[in-house]
């Protein structure tokens, strides 16, 4: 029997169909709901209500700030780890890397619950809701920062450091002139993987912030219980924020292809 020949284009069809039904069409549905009222007439009402309501704007700002702090803390923690792992000649560094990665294999609701129990035991649950939320986010998203950083740092050619030493550069210069610029793609992909989800991951804020911390994801969830139109508008605004921030981070990407997590 003759096997039908697949061209590259035909191989794309399943994904294209998936994209159409689960990404493109839902986007239009959201757009439709965001700009209609309850009688399904075209309306800017939700748009006006969103931008005239200080609560919603504040929530966006709060989410941005929480996500920003989470990202910065993640970078500060992950960079040294990834750097040491990438530069060290340890034979067993794979094991250490795995130690950072294995928590990702456990369901994250379970992990957040475990942190909740831990905080409860220490006694800070309910006392510092914002701190707890950021802690949970950092814990949750740290591997997503370590992996791309490790991958890019590992790729840096050792001879570059030798050259910098030859030219009289000290360790600090080598870091600022070689390591940091060349690890930029890793930082960017780490930031996109941490910053965007931590704006919406309300499971963490609900469980560790005792539902007293509200981020934009929770808003969307709550509105979809009662008012799809407003919910769609919030989702749309978030979409735009996400789009703009990935556009910005895209500007920093170098021409090289960045491979994110290679595990």
């Amino acid at each position: 029997m003759k096997m039908p020949r697949f061209s590259r284009k035909t191989l794309c069809i399943p994904y294209a169909v998936f994209l159409l039904f689960f990404v493109v069409i839902p986007m239009f549905v959201i757009l439709f709901y965001a700009f209609t009222d309850r009688e399904m007439h075209f309306s800017f009402m939700n748009f006006v209500r969103f931008f005239s309501d200080p609560t919603k704007l504040s929530t966006i700002v709060y989410s941005l700030v929480i996500a920003l702090i989470t990202t910065v803390v993640c970078i500060l923690v992950a960079y040294p780890v990834a750097y040491i792992l990438a530069r060290s000649k340890m034979k067993k560094k794979f094991v250490i890397l795995m130690l950072f990665v294995t928590p990702m294999w456990i369901n994250f609701v379970l992990r957040v619950n475990a942190i909740r129990e831990l905080f409860n035991w220490i006694g800070i649950l309910g006392e510092a809701n914002y701190f707890n939320t950021v802690f949970g986010m950092v814990y949750d998203f740290l591997p997503f920062m370590i992996l791309p950083l490790y991958t890019t740092l590992q790729k840096i050619d050792v001879s570059l450091y030798e050259a910098s030493a030859d030219l009289g550069g000290n360790a600090f210069t080598a870091f600022t002139r070689i390591t940091l610029p060349l690890s930029m793609p890793g930082i960017i992909s780490g930031v996109t993987m941490v910053f965007l989800p931590s704006m919406t991951n309300y499971v963490v804020s609900d469980m560790l912030g005792n539902s007293k911390v509200t981020i934009i994801g929770k808003f969307i969830y709550e509105y979809f219980g009662t008012d799809w139109h407003m919910g769609s508008m919030v989702a749309l605004v978030l979409l735009i924020v996400v789009f703009v921030s990935s556009l910005l981070s895209g500007g920093f990407k170098s021409e090289e292809n960045v491979r994110g997590a290679n595990l």
Binding site: T55, L57, T59, E222, Y223
Partner: peptide, 24 residues
Amino acid sequence: NIRINELWSRVKAETLDAWAIIVI
């Protein structure tokens, strides 16, 4: 319902002053 939901979102979320939003 809209009124109550708006109330709820004001309660659940922290509302910043306008100047704070602008500064941030």
